[in-house]
């Protein structure tokens, strides 16, 4: 029976695909972001007028574009895992490279957005909404940077386990952004 499990010897984690410790990280990161989202939702409930007025200063189209970019980079990473599973090293590196380029594009768009807001005098100290906006998106941005470093590392030290682990982290970054985008940009 244990021979059929992806990670025999890991107890309850043994049925999870890929590196079990990455799943522990994914779960803990999701819990941390859920706590922040709940805090944001609570603050919004206390002062919806301020949050609505502040949300108008954002560019939801840029946020949407970044969603499309990040989800496409997620596809590239998943295709890299498919490629490494059949031993196609060159193709794996190609998909990882494409994912990294898209990740950099995400960062570029985000930096344009930050620059635009800062030049309009909208800083984390402007009000509670912008405190959350910068706090949540910058925390996510830090994860994107870490994910890019991981993808770079596994492009160099390419193995099935390494690519699977980095891919799982990158998909978690996708997942958090999927929840962050409507919360900050869309719901008004």
């Amino acid at each position: 029976m244990s021979r059929d499990l992806p990670n025999p010897g890991w107890g309850p984690l043994s049925t999870l695909p890929g590196n079990p410790l990455m799943w522990v990280l994914i779960l803990s990161e999701m819990l941390v972001f859920t706590a922040f989202f709940a805090l944001y939702a609570g603050q919004r409930a206390l002062d919806p007028a301020l949050f609505n007025a502040s949300q108008q200063q954002l560019d939801p189209l840029l946020g949407g574009l970044n969603t499309l970019v990040l989800l496409t980079s997620g596809l590239c990473v998943a295709l890299a895992v498919e490629a490494i599973s059949v031993g196609r090293m060159q193709r794996t590196r190609l998909w990882l490279g494409a994912a990294m380029l898209l990740g950099l594009l995400f960062c570029g768009i985000k930096l344009i957005e930050y620059t635009d807001k800062f030049s309009a005098g909208l800083t984390p100290e402007t009000n509670a909404f912008f405190g959350f906006y910068y706090g949540l998106t910058a925390f996510h941005f830090a994860h994107v940077l870490f994910g890019l470093a991981l993808l770079g590392l596994v492009s160099w030290r390419t193995s099935t386990e390494n690519v699977e682990t980095a891919a799982a982290f990158w998909h978690m970054v996708d997942l958090i952004w999927i929840l962050l985008y409507p919360l900050i940009y869309l719901l008004r």
């Binding site: 999701m30 989202f37 709940a38 944001y40 939702a41 603050q43 919004r44 409930a45 002062d47 929840l179």
Partner: peptide, 19 residues
């Protein structure tokens, strides 16, 4: 995992509706 996503979205919806 799906439960956690649903709880997160429920919290977001609750905050939005309360406001």
């Amino acid at each position: 995992f799906i439960g956690l996503i649903l709880v997160t979205l429920a919290l977001i919806a609750a905050g939005y509706l309360a406001g």
